[in-house]
Design a protein around this nucleic acid. Structure first.
Length: 856
RNA sequence: GCGGACGUGGCGGAAUGGUAGACGCAGGGGACUUAAAAUCCCUUGAGCUUGCUCGUGCGGGUUCGAGUCCCGCCGUCCGUACCA
């Protein structure tokens, strides 16, 4: 239910001391007023145009950090501005509440993951409220509650029914000492973070979502996302990685064949060996009777599973003794098992062309295999040696028989055509994107709703028995998934035959939880995940805001999940986020001293340090500490500031203003004590300025009227583009102009407008001042100031006069002055004549209203 | 390794290929004050010959004109599929 906005609201009048804005009292008072009026509840039945503003929901890690404050302040300014501009705004908040840190807390502190998480949520919710965000708390959700994850289980079953869920074997990081699966984050230099044991790759049967079925449309869909940053679209396109290539067959000396895939069929004459993955059937077959090969394959299994680790590891190979016959030259190519070939991509086997692929180059160098040039800058450069690395670039084919002289693109097509004609290969599209493995061998996640029955196999839990609820009574004494060793939870009768069976003990990747929460915010029926009509009304999210670190995984998974639900008819929207904004991090310099005992740096928090002009000292002993680089705030470097302390000292509006000032929101924001003090001073300066509003003032100041309306128009554009730092700069300019102006009706009007302009950014100050100047109702419900279009254009412009591209003079002329007139005025300038020094003007470039360039 | 971004005064930054440094912070000088805080005013890229030269990470190029476009480097950051 939304409050009737035409109703005037009784407001508590200003604070006792009119010269100073008392944030400590005002903040809470206005937060209560908004709550009581339910100002920020989104009305599903509203007839206004809708706007869904969403920031990525937080993981409840303990306390809000400054990065959250920045993220939610940006969204809040947008949401409040949209509301003032007449939109029905949906601006919800919830908690991405499943995840590893809760289990780590359970192991480290002996607390229950659920209790720990819910306490964190309570703390962080109070912190967010204290910042005065215009959130619709009636739609709050936490993914760790059955009211949320039960619906997720139902959706997972729908996708299973549609054939988009399957099981297969896949490798995990296995800690052989703790006998548990490790996340990549828990593998440090190839060893388990707790046990220190060398981690192995181990294969487990796991659940997968068929995101590759959507590879084409996820790629094509990027073109419709014209309000996403180009960099994110590019990163996603590269991640999906569509490539056209050739899959073809080598005949082997042992009578078998091997299928390889290459994106560079043009370089086929440069192939000097064939390499297969350690998991490849050929490798397995060779290993069967060969202890040395077994040893090598075991070596390949060591270490973690990340791409960075695999790619940077030393290239290692094992010569199988098998040779492959080159389809054209009929040369014999040795077949290696190689640790840099991935079973997941292509066919798990490659033709290696050392001259034109860096990994192959390194491998060939190590094992003294031929490196043949088959692409060169020109046809006569066929013998040019390599400069210590492969050349992956464009050129023309050389040393390549019938391909010689052809450009790379033509040669690709020619080889594919010959392979298809000869029946030994075919052109093929291959995707870099792999299916999404969602199984996690962990407790604190959404239980995967399946039951394993010896007789019936894998059986879905019937929907009327959802949710499958996590048991509370679990222990974290031993490593590994407590669901597996729980006494009763997993033992259930098979839903089909009734025989004793076992629940699936894997839980879902938390990225699944965050792949549809934006739908649940739009509507929250108890009996279904969402109401499609409500989805149709609110979605897509008009503006989504979050960290750039989510550019690929979270955003791709959310796009996939939305498209999958669309395909199976649950919703009618294909893309969840119409516009995306990726914000930068909040950073701070570090303070440290080297501990003489071990040579390691000891870090100190900003609160422990006194910052002086040249350097910093430790408050405790007055000695110097080293001031380090400005880096992302992190607990380990202690360069963190607690938002609660800042709010307590300076008020919510000062920290909000700091978050918006100076740094462009997509870039990193360096926190500084001086900066927040400057913001707090500006809050007080505005308070004094607002106090100068006189309802009865007379007189017109056209220059100020112009400045006022130009600022409103420009700031609205800046806010819509999330260029808050520019809006802030304009607000300063307007405040400066008002300060300098003599009292008049225009000045009072400008003060009132300024108040409305800053209302989304400093809502508490704005409410207090609004009450003071006799504004009607709450400023949170006031209308955005209107502008007179006639005042937006200046009638006088400054034109730059250049001689040979260097600035020599400027002219103030009426807007629209003719080219000839501008040229004549430029030539009449003394400074121009001095710069010309008698030289003849050969060419004149005139950009009307901007510049004249005289080229001598 | 691969993919993507970013780099401008002491600092954060502004600038549809068209006056580089808007706006803020910090600094310097002054006013007010017994004093301080607060506030207000002036000033602040560098160099020199005071109206000129240099100046947007480095090296090239395109253009009448480049912070902006192109090529090649260097540095920093993000992601790399089980951190969220």
């Amino acid at each position: 239910m939304t409050a009737d906005r035409s109703d005037p609201v009784p407001v508590n009048a200003a604070t006792a001391e009119p010269s100073r804005f008392d944030a400590a009292s005002a903040d809470v008072r206005w937060q209560r007023a908004w709550d009581e009026r339910q100002c920020f509840r989104a009305d599903d039945r509203s007839t206004r145009p809708r706007s869904y503003i969403l920031e990525m929901f937080p993981y409840p890690s303990g306390r809000i950090h400054i990065g959250h404050v920045r993220n939610y302040t940006m969204g809040d300014v947008l949401a409040r501005t949209k509301r003032m501009q007449g939109f029905e705004v949906l601006h919800p908040m919830g908690w991405d509440a499943f995840g590893m840190p809760a289990e780590n807390a359970a192991m480290d502190k002996g607390v229950h993951p659920g209790g720990w998480t819910r306490e964190n949520i309570a703390t962080m919710k109070a912190q967010l409220k204290r910042l005065g965000f215009a959130l619709d708390w009636s739609r709050e959700l936490a993914t760790c509650e059955p009211e949320y994850y039960g619906h997720e289980q139902a959706l997972f079953l729908d996708l299973y029914a549609a054939g988009l869920v399957y099981r297969r074997e896949s490798a995990v990081n296995w800690d052989p000492v703790d006998q548990t699966v490790l996340a990549n984050e828990q593998v440090i230099d190839g060893r388990g973070w707790r046990s220190g044991a060398v981690v192995e790759k181990r294969k487990l049967n796991q659940w997968f979502l068929k995101i590759t079925d959507f590879a084409d449309e996820l790629l094509d869909g990027l073109e419709t996302l014209d309000k996403w940053p180009d960099k994110v679209r590019l990163m996603q396109a590269n991640w999906i990685g569509k490539s056209q290539g050739l899959q073809f067959r080598f005949d082997l000396s042992n009578g078998g064949v091997v299928d390889v895939y290459t994106t560079r069929p043009d370089t086929i004459f440069g192939a000097s060996f064939v390499a297969v993955a350690a998991d490849h059937p050929i490798a397995q077959a060779v290993a069967a009777g060969n202890p040395a090969a077994q040893e090598f394959i075991a070596l390949c299994k060591q270490g973690g599973t990340t791409a960075a680790e695999l790619e940077t590891a030393e290239k290692l190979g094992f010569d199988t003794g098998i040779v492959a016959r080159h389809p054209f030259s009929e040369a014999d190519l040795p077949v290696f098992i190689a640790n840099f070939v991935l079973m997941e991509y292509g066919t798990g086997a490659i033709m290696a062309v050392p001259g034109h692929d860096q990994r192959d180059f390194e491998f060939a160098t190590k094992y003294a295999l031929p490196i043949i040039r088959v692409v060169a800058a020109s046809a006569d450069a066929a013998d040019q040696p390599f400069a210590g690395e492969a050349e992956a670039g464009d050129g023309v084919l050389v040393n390549s028989d019938f391909l010689n002289g052809q450009p790379v693109a033509d040669a690709k097509a020619a080889v594919i055509a010959r392979a298809e004609a000869g029946g030994w290969g075919e052109g093929k599209t291959v995707w870099r994107l792999r299916d999404w493995g969602v199984s996690r061998q962990r407790y604190w996640g959404t239980p995967i709703p399946f039951i394993h029955c010896d007789a019936c196999g894998v059986v879905p839990v019937p929907k009327d028995r959802l949710p499958v609820i996590l048991p509370d009574d679990v222990d974290f004494e031993t490593p590994g998934n407590p669901l597996v060793r729980h006494a009763t939870w997993k033992h259930v009768p098979c839903p089909q035959c009734g025989a004793p069976a076992q629940r699936e003990t894997d839980t879902l990747d938390t990225f699944v939880d965050s792949s549809w929460y934006f739908l649940r915010f739009a509507s929250q029926p108890a009996d279904r995940p969402f109401d499609p009509d409500a989805i149709a009304k609110w979605l897509p999210v008009e503006q989504y805001i979050g960290g750039i670190e989510h550019a690929i995984l979270h955003l791709l998974y959310a796009r996939f999940w939305t498209r999958a639900l669309e395909r199976i008819g649950k919703i009618a929207v294909k893309e969840p986020f119409a516009s995306l904004f990726t914000q930068g991090m909040v950073t701070h310099e570090t303070y440290s001293r080297v501990d003489p005992a071990n040579g390691q740096p000891v870090f100190f928090s900003p609160a422990e340090v006194e910052r002086i002009a040249e350097g910093a000292t430790l408050r405790a002993d007055g000695g110097a500490v080293e001031v380090g680089r400005v880096i992302k705030m992190s607990k380990s470097k202690k360069n963190v500031v607690d938002p609660d302390e800042i709010v307590a000292t300076y008020g919510a509006d000062a920290i909000r203003w700091f978050m918006l000032s100076d740094s462009p929101p997509e870039r990193d924001l360096p926190w500084s004590e001086a900066g927040i003090e400057g913001c707090a001073r500006f809050v007080q300066r505005l308070w004094r300025l607002f106090g100068q509003f006189e309802g009865a003032a007379l007189g017109k100041n056209e220059a100020l009227d112009r400045k006022r309306d130009q600022t409103v128009a420009a700031a609205a554009e800046d806010i819509a583009a999330l260029s808050f730092n520019k809006a802030v700069a304009r607000i300063y300019e307007l405040a400066n102009a008002i300060d300098k102006a003599a009292p008049s009706a225009s000045r009072s009007q400008a003060i009132r407008t300024l108040l409305l302009l800053v209302a989304p950014m400093m809502p508490h100050l704005a409410e207090e001042a609004w009450a003071l100047i006799g504004g009607e109702g709450l400023v949170a419900e006031a209308a955005w100031p209107s502008v007179d279009p006639a005042l937006l254009v200046d009638d006088q412009v400054t034109v730059a006069i250049q001689v040979k591209g260097k600035l020599r003079d400027t002219l103030s002329v009426p807007k629209g002055t003719a080219r000839e007139k501008l040229e004549a005025l430029a030539l009449a300038s003394d400074k121009v004549q001095r710069a010309l020094d008698g030289a003849e003007v050969k060419k004149v470039i005139v950009v009307p209203d901007r510049l004249v360039n005289l080229v001598a």
